[in-house]
């Protein structure tokens, strides 16, 4: 039952977007978000939206899965839009009681909602097309310069790797303990919230004890294999940016920069 839980939502695939270097994808996402937040002209929005549409269609991620990711954010999107509708100063279109709706407000609300939707969709596109392992590895590599200013990047990456390595193991164990406790009459499924939370104690205590024992044994095993922190460590898999990564990065960033600058300077046709 618990085995079906996966970390994040990764849809494996072999499209161009899937195969791009995860670091390139992260930088692209960052560039995309920057362009999106700097956008102040309908044409800039149009370009960013076009870019996102093309990427999504290349990645073959279904729109329905993208919208599913948006659902939890719906409240924030609507809330922001509503606030913008009522609180943007301008020529009132409709006025009732203390509220007034302005044309500027509607325009701004629409752009705001679009901006949020695109922001979330783009982020989900990254997690949908990149395995969690590749993501954490890429993040660690991108952040590795921070190691120079004593940010524990290596430790963070190691923690992520070990966490991901042990999630399936511990889920399996949870299943076992649950069955063992059920066999002794434990009831995890009935009663009110408080009762159910209380029923979890006989599950959590053995699970934590075992997790600590595992941690202890793993630490010894790591030491036996010459682990001594990140100092002087090499990596077997050296990712290299393929031509397509460089190409995707440079063209996209150039396009984003160009469109943003043009939009900001108002050089588009009126």
């Amino acid at each position: 039952m618990l085995k079906d839980i996966t970390l994040g939502q990764y849809f494996p695939g072999t499209t161009l977007i899937h195969r791009l270097d995860p670091r390139a994808k992260m930088v692209l996402l960052f560039a995309f978000i920057t362009a999106l937040l700097m956008a102040n002209h309908p044409l800039t929005y149009g370009f960013v939206l076009l870019y996102l549409t093309v990427t999504v269609s290349v990645s073959r991620i279904k729109l329905s899965s993208l919208f599913r990711g948006l659902r939890p954010m719906l409240f924030i999107i609507v809330f922001t839009a509503v606030l913008n509708i009522f609180y943007t100063p301008g020529e009132p279109l409709v006025t009732f009681w203390v509220f007034k709706i302005t044309a500027e407000g509607i325009e701004r609300a629409a752009f705001m909602a679009l901006r949020l939707i695109m922001l979330i969709s783009a982020t989900f596109l990254l997690t949908y097309t990149t395995s969690p392992l590749a993501l954490s590895d890429a993040l660690a590599r991108l952040l590795s310069p921070l190691g120079k200013i004593r940010v524990p990047v290596h430790e963070f990456a190691m923690m992520m790797t070990i966490a991901m390595r042990f999630i399936p193991t511990i889920i399996e164990e949870t299943d076992k303990i649950m069955n063992a406790q059920k066999a002794r009459g434990a009831d995890f499924e009935t009663g009110n919230l408080f009762r159910r939370a209380k029923a979890l104690i006989p599950l959590l205590v053995p699970l934590f004890v075992s997790a600590f024992r595992r941690a202890d044994e793993l630490a010894v095993a790591m030491e036996c294999r010459c682990y001594h922190g990140g100092k002087g460590r090499t990596r077997m898999n050296q990712p290299h940016m393929a031509a397509r990564d460089v190409w995707a990065l440079t063209t996209s960033v150039a396009l984003f920069a160009g469109v943003t600058v043009l939009g900001r300077l108002g050089w588009f046709l009126p």
Partner: peptide, 13 residues
């Protein structure tokens, strides 16, 4: 050195 529980000595995914 190899230990008893194989699960607790494998580090990577």
């Amino acid at each position: 050195l190899v230990f008893q529980n194989p699960d607790n000595q494998i580090v990577a995914t």
